[in-house]
């Protein structure tokens, strides 16, 4: 009935690291690209992020991890999403993440992870592309 299907994205800042410049910039950029962005603030636990993702019925969870804890946080959120029946949700994100860790996380079912200096448009194109593929599949 409604032609326009808004993409809902949760932008989350997991862990104890308070550097939210990247998260805020990406949240604003997604808003400006027409997304509905749910921003949950700092210092989120994986449980909090997944509870919010489920209640908000988001299409995408994007996490910003600069603390080096990515190998703990991404798999943990992925596992909890799967357990909550939200396995169709795209888990993506960015931060200071070495290349081989990126590859390892992708093997574990996590979407693309973007490094520092990535233009926001690249992340937006990626999510749009993923969403379009979901709709047709």
């Amino acid at each position: 009935m409604s032609d326009e299907r808004k993409i809902r994205i949760l932008v989350a800042k997991p862990g104890l690291d308070g550097h939210d410049r990247g998260a805020k910039v990406i949240a604003s950029a997604f808003r400006d690209a027409g997304f509905e962005v749910i921003y949950t603030g700092l210092h989120q636990t994986p449980e909090m992020i997944v509870a919010a993702a489920v209640q908000e019925d988001v299409d995408v969870v994007a996490m910003s991890v600069l603390s080096g804890a990515h190998m703990t946080l991404f798999p943990r959120v992925k596992k909890l999403l799967d357990e909550a029946g939200a396995d169709q949700v795209l888990l993506t994100g960015g931060g200071i993440i070495p290349e081989d860790d990126v590859a390892e996380l992708e093997r574990r079912g996590i979407g693309r992870l973007f490094g520092p200096g990535t233009p926001t448009t690249t992340a937006i194109e990626y999510v749009n592309g993923w969403f379009a593929a979901q709709q047709t599949s």
């Binding site: 862990g15 104890l16 603390s67 080096g68 804890a69 190998m71 703990t72």
Partner: peptide, 10 residues
């Protein structure tokens, strides 16, 4: 428990 994964990392 809140420290999980971040101990000694940064």
């Amino acid at each position: 428990p809140r420290s999980l994964g971040e101990v000694g990392v940064c």
